[in-house]
Design a protein around this nucleic acid. Structure first.
Lengths: 219, 219, 219, 219
DNA sequence: TATGAATGAGCTTTCATTCAT
DNA sequence: GATGAATGAAAGCTCATTCAT
């Protein structure tokens, strides 16, 4: 969540929006250390001192951007959880994944910051940020897996942790495939249109459903 | 593969090895732009000019390091392909995944460079490097999927591209879970011992096998 | 003396006092150039623009602070001069020195500003300020030395200027020893209690009396 | 003493000298925080990076300058101590003071750095530097006071610590009077010629001798 | 061939001061 | 009269790269 910051909160909302957009883009393009405050203020056409007045330092800006991003994620996530209450497990996963794809399309920079943070160990606040994100995600998946087990939609011999992990992995990597080139194999998911994405996702979930819920041949 | 580089190839092999190790570590720790040639030469105790004589510039060094890494990957990969010729699909996948885990444990820096490259768009040579790697991996998986289909180990209605994608995804993300914190959920794969890794992998492949090859309940 | 400054003189006296205290502290801690107007207004919780309205610029603030300090010095100095009228030379010096130590204890920041000004050549208004202070001090000492000579309390062959210088030096350095570490040798004057200070001062003046008056009291 | 610094020690001695002179001047003029590395390199006509290569950072430069200054002080101090072995106390003090005045005239910047350090609490390394200097000075004075007492040149009832303090004070302040305006009263010691300095010093020591030794020479 | 001193553009950050509200 | 957002020059410091020795 945003740091208490009276100056930044008091300026013209349109300007505020431009700064957030530009900063998000810069961090998405370059990560933290390689992001340049100079570049940002030059592109924004504002004074360098202003940015430091708003956020204290470069890391403060990052934290604000991150807080802003998280706050944008919360609303749609909560809505989906409620809307799919009672639905079958894979229907829910499908909805979540597509919502993720929509979010990535609407806010590609935010997702790229998240990916950079995952694989750049010296990203500031990395541990705190990632812990929070992964915990939220894990709690969510655990709850829907539990509900699915109680509804008899999952094989009883499946370790719930493993099920959560597999679903997480699949959803996560699917979204990476949509957002990042080189990770989508011959499925051409990167930058694909919505129809293609849905079709591919359905195929994939179908295969997963076989393992998680189906009768297993080698029993 | 290594750039043609007569000067570097002619120096004392031990020194050559130390330089490769140090450079690999630096790039793994800091990515490309944030890696510091100063730090490398200080730690190595060699002259800065030497490094530039050998590799022209920082990017040249990276390319050499990358070529060196790829050459180290080829041998074990080839060996596994041959050793598992004729084995069942999931047995082969299992072998490949465990070989990957071994490689990561033996050469953690190389794997971290690869991960950094995946998600840092401004990594030099990124496109070329990743295309080559993913192509190799895809070709390999396609060939064993085809062999599995011909041997009747896969449902006939499964799209081969989708099967390759799903296997790739699963193996890839499993290895990330072993190497990177925050990606292993409650399975505690990160930094786990060999036994744990094997057990988890078996559970996971079991679930996948259900989907890819098993009798499907909703047929 | 305070610059004519109607705006500042008209504000709430308590606020005025807080500003003076904070500014004095800041200049005492950091000298002139290193003092930060930002820090002051942050600590005071007032608007930056207000300070500049009151004093024009940073130097104006310093001048006001200095004038304020001088005005606080005048009263006790005048009182001592009158109270010790007719007393023996060293009794007067003793009273003055102890009054100085009291002032330093009551207003440590003021004394530290004075010391900083002495040895920082680029302190604004330095020449004017120091000339005024030293002139006051010199005039005072000259008058009591003259009175002492007329009263036959000093050797007749002593150069009055030299006597003034020696007394000034001794008093001045004694006060520095009380206020600044590293200047008190093994006498431990820095931060000492009043009793210790008086004892040390008496010993010292005793030795000086021997040289200046030609009589050694303890023989 | 100078930090181990191979790069700086390897460059052209003349350039090295120019850098030391310029840096000493800058610190003498502006203290530490207000001293500008930019200004130094501009005046020197060298690259900014070079200075940081030599000394790591601004503080490293200061430490080197300080070490250099101390090393320049040691030789003459040692020589005087030996040359005046067996001389009468005040003869020794006289020699030391005049040597101090010579040093200040030859190296005015060094002395001004010392003064700045005394009264600027946030001078880096201040405690360590001052402790070392004052300890050396105190040890020296203690030894010659002890020798004087053993030779019967001091009143037996004088506290040796007090004698050391008084001598230290007097010498120290005399040197300040020579180096800094506003501290010399009507004696006009600041910037005075050697003859004037010697005459004033003799008068002053004469007065001190009266108090410390119990004999008044001019009676 | 190997060295390492020199470079200067670039970085993040601070600050006194101005002025529209 | 009070406010506080905006400014931009200057600060300390890092770095890949060059080149004379």
């Amino acid at each position: 969540m945003p740091t208490k910051n009276t100056t930044f909160e008091n300026i013209d909302p349109e300007k505020r929006q431009r700064i957030m957009t530009e900063a998000t883009r810069e961090f998405a393009d370059h990560g933290f250390h390689q992001a340049s405050v100079n570049r940002m203020v030059n592109r924004l056409g504002i004074a360098k001192g202003s940015l430091f007045k708003y956020f204290g330092n470069k890391q403060g800006l990052l934290e604000y951007v991150f807080g802003h991003a998280v706050s944008m994620l919360k609303a749609p996530l909560k809505q989906i959880r409620m809307e799919t209450q009672g639905d079958e497990l894979f229907t829910r996963i499908r909805r979540i994944t597509l919502a993720g794809a929509d979010f990535i399309e609407a806010h590609p920079h935010i997702y790229r910051i998240y990916l950079k943070m995952l694989f750049q160990e010296n990203f500031p606040m990395r541990e705190q940020f990632l812990k929070k994100i992964r915990a939220t995600s894990a709690k969510f998946l655990h709850s829907i897996v539990r509900e699915a087990m109680e509804a008899g939609q999952l094989r009883t011999d499946v370790d719930p942790d493993m099920a959560v992990y597999l679903l997480d992995t699949t959803v996560d990597r699917f979204l990476q495939s949509v957002a990042v080139p080189f990770l989508d194999g011959d499925l051409n998911l990167h930058g694909a249109d919505r129809t293609t994405i849905e079709t591919r996702l359905d195929s994939m979930l179908d295969l997963l459903r076989g393992g998680l819920s189906g009768t297993v041949s080698h029993d």
